[in-house]
């Protein structure tokens, strides 16, 4: 596709967004479950279809978006501005949503984690990973999981998972994470404890 043309958004905004939201809700209420978004539009630049679908479903003019270096491209910025009307911010702390690379040196640093009285005022991070399977398996426990789930997300290193543990330890504050690869995603809300 030509660089000058904007990639298409959701074909049927009301119904597509509803279907996609229910799949995101399914993922968020069943952490560790791989959810495949069949209707996900192919996104601009390096943005995966799953991340694109997530943002088109939930972001709008009320939710500033922060983009990691790999995604901070004209094509992505203009796509999000046109289809979702989101402000693009350069300060992590201002963002309601963020698209983060799995190899960012400090992937969770600087984002809003809410306050003890308003833990909902926290960012939701979409972390782009190479694959949702095939990595080192880890055990996830917490609300939404019947006992324990084995999740083997490929890409993030040990230091990343230590940051996630610190994020969980600050509950009820903390960021919520959605791992995206292709047209699939796995959610990991802050309530989830991850063991090696």
């Amino acid at each position: 596709m030509s660089d000058t043309l904007l990639a298409p958004g959701l074909a049927d905004p009301a119904h597509d967004a509803q279907r996609l939201f229910r799949q995101v809700l399914d993922a968020m209420s069943h952490p560790g479950r791989i959810v495949t978004l069949d209707d996900a539009p192919s996104g601009p630049g390096a943005l995966s279809p799953a991340a694109t679908a997530f943002l088109l479903t939930l972001a709008d003019r009320d939710t500033p978006v922060w983009l990691d270096t790999a995604f901070d491209l004209d094509a992505v910025r203009s796509f999000l501005r046109f289809h979702a009307g989101t402000p693009i911010v350069t300060t992590r702390g201002d963002a309601a949503f963020a698209v983060v690379s799995f190899d960012d040196p400090a992937p969770l640093d600087g984002f809003a984690i809410g306050t003890d009285t308003f833990p909902d005022r926290s960012a939701t991070l979409v972390i782009e990973v190479p694959a949702l399977q095939g990595g080192a398996p880890r055990t996830w426990r917490g609300p939404g999981i019947d006992g324990a789930a084995r999740v083997a997300i490929a890409g993030p290193c040990e230091a990343f998972w230590r940051e996630c543990a610190a994020n969980h330890a600050s509950f009820p504050c903390g960021v919520d994470i959605v791992f995206a690869a292709g047209n699939q995603l796995i959610a990991m809300p802050r309530s989830i404890a991850v063991e090696a």
Binding site: P13, A14, A17, Q18, F21, V24, L25, M28, S29, T57, L58, A59, D60, D62, T63, A96, P119, D120, S122, T124, P143, G144, F171, P172, D176, P189, R190, S191
Partner: peptide
């Protein structure tokens, strides 16, 4: 309207992430 639904959907996701809050 769609804007309202998005706002409620975002609230629902935060509610799921912090159970009981």
């Amino acid at each position: 309207d769609e804007q309202t639904k998005r706002m409620i959907r975002r609230a629902i996701l935060k509610a799921v992430a912090v159970p009981g809050y």
